[in-house]
Design a protein around this nucleic acid. Sequence first.
DNA 1: CACTAATCCTGGACGC
DNA 2: TGCGTCCAGGATTAGT
Length: 273
Amino acid sequence: MPELPEVETTVCGLKQWLPTNICLESLRFTRRDFRIPLPRGFINKLSGQRLIDIRRRAKYILFHFEQHIVIHHLGMTGNWRRFSLEDQRTHDHAHFHFGAKTHLVFHDPRRFGFFDLVLAKDQGSSRWLRHLGPEPLDEREFHAEYLQAKAYGKKVPVKTFLMDQKVVVGIGNIYASEILFQAGVRPMVMAGKVKSAQWEKIVTVTFDVLNRAIALGGTSLRDYRQTDGKLGYFSGQLQVYGREGLACSLCSQSIRQAVLSGRSTYWCPRCQK
DNA sequence: CACTAATCCTGGACGC
DNA sequence: TGCGTCCAGGATTAGT
């Protein structure tokens, strides 16, 4: 499901529900078999702890408690909502009680999501975080020179390259196609062959596409919802993703689809070179 | 080392 | 209506 804009939107929603220093009074899991099993002692270590902050790193949500950090991933189908008696669903796997008024439910049909726990001081050595590349919205670290150096000699398609979280984080299958359309670069071009002017364009449109998607609450295809239950309205802005056979909005050519590195990929054969 | 497929899981769409 | 097949926003791993 969620790429950077959807995770960012989710974190913003969670922050609205959870003021700084709110206490996690209790938590309950109806299943523990997520993509990784719930760590031993998870519930005991967090019960009664104060929540200091919620942050996003890559596609991970980080719940900062006093001594521990919960590293949480939404997987493909994970989402959070406020509990209500009238709205209980299958695949509600976790319940977090922050006081009487704030009862949050984690819902995840495919269970590709997970919860991990690290000591705050060990955050940097976490297996989930240690190999991550820069944030694409950080202009100091994410720029054309960085990408060109990183791509030197690489034969993977540029789209696969942009989805590699060791290169840059947060870009998944939808936004990779959209970014390359906006940049006018064909997804299957080898990363090592992309010209510096094209990297410049990719950096610029990445910033633009991700920020516009965040502003619209992300992209809803099937499962994803903002935490307030609304759809993510970037779906209506998609230029190529899921539009095989439809007319390109710029040149009316038929949008094409192919599988690249195992993932569906969409592009305009006239606008992208 | 570089790169690709298989894998975890459920549900919805589609063809017959 | 029902059943089988394929596909889906991710990221690790196992394999070539």
